[in-house]
Design a binder for these strands. Structure first.
Lengths: 234, 234
DNA sequence: TATATGGATTGATATTTGTCATTACCTTTG
DNA sequence: CAAAGGTAATGACAAATATCAATCCATATA
């Protein structure tokens, strides 16, 4: 349960406390440790939050805005592996391996994030088994969703991949059949592993077939069934 | 350090103890718990060890043979996400999420594996922070290597992908520039996300260019530099 | 030995997808 | 207003890749 001091302090980690399930199992004094060792950072839309290959020593908890995570590949081609929205935290796999970032993060919109030293996080995992379980559960969920994207990108043709991206954005990220996104067409292409032109073409086809409506950066899923069918048939 | 009783008992978990780094941080009594609660299973080449979608409640530690892990996609197409050799353990992400397998495992050769109840594993993670760290480290490493494969499969063309598979087999799995594998051409295709025929064609090209030698299921890397170049240039 | 079986190989062809060039559109800036 | 810059959209074309069919080859089986 949230303590009084956190209720009063209407910033970052307090907010996290109320939303992100992973903090639910922390005791009051453990939350205090986090609260005392965090720094809140504001990012403007488009700003780089951290870059692949640089040293990583912090857990990042997003409290406002939206962030895209992407692996930088060859020829300046990126692969977007996920979108993060409040209140969700980002803790790359490098923390336990080589203390480096293995993907980059960019603020898609003006965003606010809290940084907590990774060592504090590790200490909590040692001292609180339930917290450790929650953390491993989180990592496992991420791994499972990676598998999904893996299959989508390697075994489906372009319409199926675009369908998956649209269903992901509508279902998981914006939680609405209509959504306006800060993602560019290039970003959608980077999520579905194709060229920008191909992404545009597939979107136009879906639009022509009245399966979706597109108006600039506003999308509406008109026939979810059809989209799911396209996702299935690859 | 291995205890006397484990030294005497020359089977599964004792062997694991001597090899797999994750067990190094376990205390003697903790190892005993594992030792008392394991069952050793023999698999013939080609046998299914567990199937995607079925209930998962065990940690599997491979002590002999070789196992391929693959995601079953659409149209009977598989994506091989990794090869496991002794002494390595397999603990899918489902254990902490939905207690189901999220990929299938098949014995490539005659294999022996020990099964340990996942709950025992979870208990150890609670009681032994160093073990928890090792485990999370392992999961993180897996995640990082997933990213590598992700980029390889989505951003490289066929020669680059085949090069990556050959370098993986030579470097990580067989640890030799010459190796004979139980993997079929279809398996190599399933590792690199292409059709069997395409895989065969690329292998032939590499052979024609004297970069590798192929004789049935025996491969030899003749020019590692060239192969790495092909991997880089996609 | 003859015959089946399954993987490996090859060639021809069709499909998918990327690249390149051009234009349109929209916003910002001088 | 005009110019500039960026994203979006479109068409023509080229490259990458899959599919299909046929053949080869080794091994198992009758």
């Amino acid at each position: 349960m949230p303590s009084e001091i956190f209720r009063k302090d209407k910033t970052c980690c307090n907010f996290c406390l109320e939303r992100s399930d992973i903090f639910a199992c922390l005791k009051q004094d453990e939350l205090s440790v986090i609260g005392e060792n965090r720094s809140e950072i504001h990012f403007k839309a488009g700003e780089l939050i951290f870059k692949q290959g640089t040293p990583a020593a912090h857990l990042l908890c997003l409290t406002k805005g939206m962030v895209k995570l992407y692996i930088e590949g060859f020829d300046n081609k990126n692969l977007i592996i996920g979108i993060v929205k409040p209140v969700e935290y980002i803790l790359g796999p490098g923390i336990y391996v080589d203390s480096k970032h293995h993907y980059s993060a960019v603020a898609m919109e003006d965003s606010i994030a809290c940084l907590v030293d990774a060592n504090i996080f590790k200490t909590l995992i040692h001292s609180n088994p339930a917290f450790a379980d929650e953390f491993i559960r989180k990592v496992s969920l991420l791994s499972i969703s990676n598998f999904q994207q893996f299959i989508s990108l390697t075994q489906k043709q372009m319409p199926g991949r675009i369908a998956d991206v649209l269903l992901y954005l509508s279902g998981t990220i914006y939680e609405s059949s209509t959504f306006t996104t800060a993602l560019s067409r290039q970003d959608l292409a980077d999520m579905s592993g194709m060229s920008k032109e191909s992404a545009i073409r597939i979107l136009k086809e879906l639009k022509d077939e009245q399966i979706i409506a597109v108006e600039g950066n506003t999308f509406e899923i008109l026939k979810r069934d059809s989209l799911e069918m396209i996702s299935q048939t690859g």
